[in-house]
């Protein structure tokens, strides 16, 4: 499984209707939609996931479930994204099979090397810039951290954390294959247009 270059990954937030957000993100050219909603019930997540996976198929985009390997298994998602506090990647791989996309969040070279050894298909590297989407006790990594982490893991990097229109191209030029955003799309007045602009910036970088 190889990841296309210059990819926009849109992650759902805690407030919007995730299906509607996914629809608009895909309309704007997002290549990955990641469903992440920590407070939703399993049934709710399953129902959203089934519909978003369908939308992604229509657009030849990938659908990834955050943390919940059970949901991904039940509705046969394209893949999962695992944080350092989630199920270990080898366990997820054993359940999902060789065809699934498994992404792992890392914030340093050591975690990146483990993720590669664990069979991850890409690493989510962050946070790059200051961000308010999640509570972050550590300082931002900055774009200079991308290349050494990528080289250590030999895996595509999807950069995350505080990425928006004005810095998206810089992240790609620093060596990331793609960018992941939450608020830059979900909090925009027009998520489709915000996605379209981000895609344009990263393609031109």
């Amino acid at each position: 499984m190889t990841l296309p270059r210059r990819l926009l990954c849109v992650i759902t937030d805690e407030r919007s209707d995730p299906v509607e957000l996914a629809r608009m993100a895909l309309e704007g050219g997002a290549g990955i939609v990641q469903l992440r909603r920590k407070t939703a019930s399993g049934r709710q997540l399953f129902e959203w996931a089934v519909r978003i996976q369908e939308l992604c198929r229509e657009r030849q985009a990938m659908f990834i479930v955050n943390d919940r390997v059970d949901i991904a298994l039940a509705m046969q998602a394209d893949g999962v994204h695992l944080g350092q506090q989630d199920m270990p990647a080898p366990a997820a791989r054993a359940l999902l099979g060789p065809g699934a996309i498994i992404g792992v969040s890392v914030s340093c070279t050591a975690e990146a090397v483990s993720a590669a050894k664990d069979g991850a298909n890409y690493i989510g590297v962050g946070h790059i810039f200051p961000t308010y989407s999640k509570d972050k006790p550590s300082p931002p990594l900055g774009t200079a951290a991308i290349k050494p982490i990528r080289n250590a893991a030999q895996l595509p990097v999807i950069a995350i954390g505080g990425i928006e229109l004005k810095n998206a191209a810089e992240v790609i030029r620093a060596g990331a294959s793609g960018i992941a955003v939450i608020s830059a799309v979900s909090e925009s007045d027009d998520p489709a247009d915000a996605s379209r602009e981000l895609v344009r910036r990263i393609r031109q970088a």
Binding site: G42, F46, R68, V69, I71, A74, L95
Partner: peptide
């Protein structure tokens, strides 16, 4: 409880679903 992925990966013999879980038939199949 609920996380049948963890049950399968950790070698547990069972899973207990809350009422608002993934549909039971999809869990049964997986």
């Amino acid at each position: 409880n609920e996380r049948f992925d963890i049950a399968l990966a950790a070698g547990a013999k069972g899973v207990h679903l809350p009422e608002s879980s993934c549909p039971a038939d999809t869990v049964r199949k997986a």
